[in-house]
Design a protein around this nucleic acid. Sequence first.
DNA 1: TTGAAAAATGTAATCGATTTCATTTAGGCG
DNA 2: CGCCTAAATGAAATCGATTACATTTTTCAA
Lengths: 341, 341
Amino acid sequence: MVLRKVGKKLANIQEVAKQARVSVATVSRVLNGQNTVSEKTRKKVEEAIKKLNYEPSMLGRNLRNSESRLFLILIPSISNPFYLEIIKGIEAVAISQNYNILLCETDSNPEKENIFFDLVRKKMADGLISMDPTVNIETLKNLSEKHAIIQCSEYEEGSGIPYVTIDNEEASYRAVKHLIQIGHKKIALINSDEKYLYARQRKMGYLRALEEYGITLNSQYIILTQHLDFENGQHAMRKILNLHDRPTAVFSVSDLLAIGALKEINTFGLQVPSDIAVVGFDKIDFSNMTNPTLTTIAQPMHKMGTVAAKMLIDKMNGKEVESIILDHELVVRESTSGQSI
Amino acid sequence: MVLRKVGKKLANIQEVAKQARVSVATVSRVLNGQNTVSEKTRKKVEEAIKKLNYEPSMLGRNLRNSESRLFLILIPSISNPFYLEIIKGIEAVAISQNYNILLCETDSNPEKENIFFDLVRKKMADGLISMDPTVNIETLKNLSEKHAIIQCSEYEEGSGIPYVTIDNEEASYRAVKHLIQIGHKKIALINSDEKYLYARQRKMGYLRALEEYGITLNSQYIILTQHLDFENGQHAMRKILNLHDRPTAVFSVSDLLAIGALKEINTFGLQVPSDIAVVGFDKIDFSNMTNPTLTTIAQPMHKMGTVAAKMLIDKMNGKEVESIILDHELVVRESTSGQSI
DNA sequence: TTGAAAAATGTAATCGATTTCATTTAGGCG
DNA sequence: CGCCTAAATGAAATCGATTACATTTTTCAA
């Protein structure tokens, strides 16, 4: 604010009005396409706009309308492709409704999270879609009293905050059932910290499948990881490979973990799926690029995004919003089907 | 705007002033931490703020200050992880300077691009960092007359728009030289459309390396792709594999392409690197997750982001800004080193 | 031609902050 | 105690739009 800013002064609505010899009200009406302006004056105004190279400032408009036309999206990390597809879905709806997106990565850091919450508090964003499992749910609840908030993928039951998600328990159940049905009995689970709801739900599905087929749980087969990334997948798999009674299959709650596991199994000199079968979760793009390709649970990520965005818009408009559970799907590929090399 | 909005009315600075029995000017001074307020009134004001749960609106502040405190980042697609790391760099600087990021994906679609340009024109963003090779450079040049703009990675020489990038020609040269030095003579190039500067530059480097070692160019060895993604890499590799005089090495100008090539080679029943060696470009995270891991050119992506952001801030403040060429590095991994399985 | 209704346009308040300039209060010193 | 200066505070303009309401102009039927 001290130094000279780039660019010359831009014309404002006043100058356009003066140039066209009309009032600012009339200019505004032309800008907003209202039909109460005569063709003649409309022409005059449009010429003035062109002549002055005028562009209406959204700062003025936004203040007047008390809106920012911005959504804030909260994600833990931009590095997990799972979120990207959801974001695309959100964006599609946002753009079509003249909104734009403020993408905010918390890195699971409460301080950063708070910076982003502040953007909502300070009306820099009209609404918030949280996909961050590490979000401070109390703060979120508080915020939701005065602001439009939707949770996507991860959620908190009974929080009063509407959410879109899938049936994690069922999805996990099906993944494990698939492994059992192709003959596996010793199935490991790479899960993330059970402080997350989805982790607890997916564990439940795992347990239910085992139980249904009368397989007793080997607690050594459950490995928890800190983050859902490649390295954590490698580390988890290393632990599993070193077990005395080594499992023949692994279900991991994230594709990134599964890809790490795949790599580790290979490094160890074993083959997927002949020695160890692997199932992931999410169906990120990369799950199809690995060798072998990864069997995984497909989440309808794009749909989740569009649904979340629509819910948010409804919420902002004061409508009642119901939470939604979307369908998932088991995608069987090489890492469990023996069609690998 | 028709329906009732979510949440109750939020307090504004007027009400705080009234509650504290001071003027709005004083409240503003407290908000901005000015030292011309007595301890006693500061207390009063702070109590009023707390009592009313007041949060200053950025809409008002932004209008008054004629700034949005938003950067706009233009990328062709969020799916290429190459951009993600750069974005993280930009974000780090942005946050530290109290800016936030509007992430805009053009999908190489001029219409979408225009929506985003409008955000700058209409002052919804204070500055723009373009990483989109498909950007309409004429429009960008026009925009840069009145607005702060930086190009990152891809750029246009002589456009007057400052840029950060690497020496693409040299990087490409080194990649190919590496292949030659480990014994390859028949080296294919998977490049993208030569309408992009980086594609032309990387081709130049490829040619220079061949020439330096007296290898004559086989024009069949150069395959151009539409996009820098996995599928295009597969297709390109398929063409190469079907060549009569099959090359023994492939240099591809993007890791995603290279990963597609890797996959295709495997599917074809050949081994990397023993049958065909592969080199990528960018060093995205996934380049280390493949089997074999990918030899690649490391771009200092995070650095590029921070540098671009700093340049943009300088530019916004009216400083002179010089373009910058950052260092790159060849990272030799399994796909060229024979340490694979 | 006139007058009422409809259409077009203008005036001024408003959104919520910041900041300049004027004014009041406090403080220090003789 | 009074005066001068410095500190604290307030009044009002300002940023750039939108819009309720007031006013002017046009239209058209009687």
